[in-house]
Amino acid sequence: MAQATGDMENNQQTPQPIIPEDTTTGTTMVLTMGLIGLACAILIVLTYQSTQATIEENKARFLEKAIFEVLPNTTGKVTYAAEHGALGQMPAGKQAEMEYYAGYNDRQQLTGIAIPAEGPGFQDIVRILYGYAPACRCIVGMKVLESKETPGLGTKIETDPVFLKNFETLDVRLTPDGNAIANPIVLVKPRQKENPWEIDAISGATISSQAIADILQASTADAVPLIEKNLDTLTR
């Protein structure tokens, strides 16, 4: 008890710690920071709004170029999204998780559907876009959109002409009931392709080639039956 009183007395006696005299108060600091923050925010919003249109356009052009590359003879595209097993046209300006791009030639006939897909590669996620043509029930083109494969080896999946030739007519016919691929895409050793659903691996880049084959196998298993069921919507 006595000690407690002593403590209290001590407390009263200890002088308040002297805050060093400074011309700037807390309010000024907060105010300056607030003002700077506001100016910065205005600048950012202005840039964002003035560049947004061009950026969207650039993105769309980039995608369109890729679509026309995987679907030969294509001059126009319409974006579709899947909903409850049916394909519906996407209103302009909206985005869906999984999009399908139907390509048309200049006589408005369906040339094929470009489908984005992704999966793990040797180094990081590999993103590709491939074209499926209902006319031949096959894949007619494949383009790597994004990959971090080893330069000079794994990057051959983007450049190697022999490997890319695999995807000019790659068979993905469906089983008679239309629910699955009759012959799932498989990777075979270099120069040993015998059947139209096999992919020749690149020697020295087997894992990257395998990655592409796996991505295609997984993606076609869902996408192709869906497209075949909705072919009437797509052919307009």
């Binding site: 793990p120 590669g121 040797f122 180094q123 990081d124 080893t150 894992i207 395998q210 990655a211």
Partner: peptide, 9 residues
Amino acid sequence: FMGFAGMGR
């Protein structure tokens, strides 16, 4: 560390 590449698969 490049030797670890491919472990992700």
